[in-house]
Amino acid sequence: MAGDRLACRECHAVVEPDEDTCPICGSTSLTEDWAGYVIVGHPDESQIAEEMEVNKPGKYALKVR
């Protein structure tokens, strides 16, 4: 876990601890139980983004429990 940030259980976006909903997908299912993250700048050019099914730039957790 990186600091006290949260991760979305639906899309794996990393969000600030004061967020109630995910800014990427709108889910309210957020957790403190996550590990590692990747920053995606250009999802249309990223193999990792393709593997993770990410289509918006941002920070994404690699493992969410």
Rank of each mutant, 00 (worst) to 15 (best):
A35W: 05
L6P: 04
S29L: 05
P17K: 05
A13W: 05
P57K: 12
A2Q: 08
V14N: 05
D4C: 05
K59G: 13
T21P: 00
K63M: 13
G3F: 07
G26H: 02
A2F: 09
I24V: 13
V64Y: 11
S27N: 03
G58T: 13
L6G: 05
G3N: 09
E51V: 11
P57Y: 12
A61P: 13
E53H: 14
R65M: 13
V64Q: 10
R9Q: 11
K63F: 15
K63W: 14
V15Q: 05
T21L: 08
L6V: 06
I48T: 14
E19A: 06
T31H: 04
S46Q: 06
A35L: 07
A35E: 12
H12F: 10
H12L: 08
R65V: 13
V54Y: 12
G26S: 00
S29R: 10
P17D: 07
K59N: 14
A13S: 11
K56Q: 15
E51L: 13
G41L: 13
I39Y: 06
T21A: 10
D4S: 08
G36T: 05
P43H: 11
G26P: 02
R65P: 07
H42L: 10
P23N: 04
D44M: 10
E45K: 13
T28G: 10
W34C: 01
V15Y: 08
I39D: 10
K63Q: 14
E10V: 11
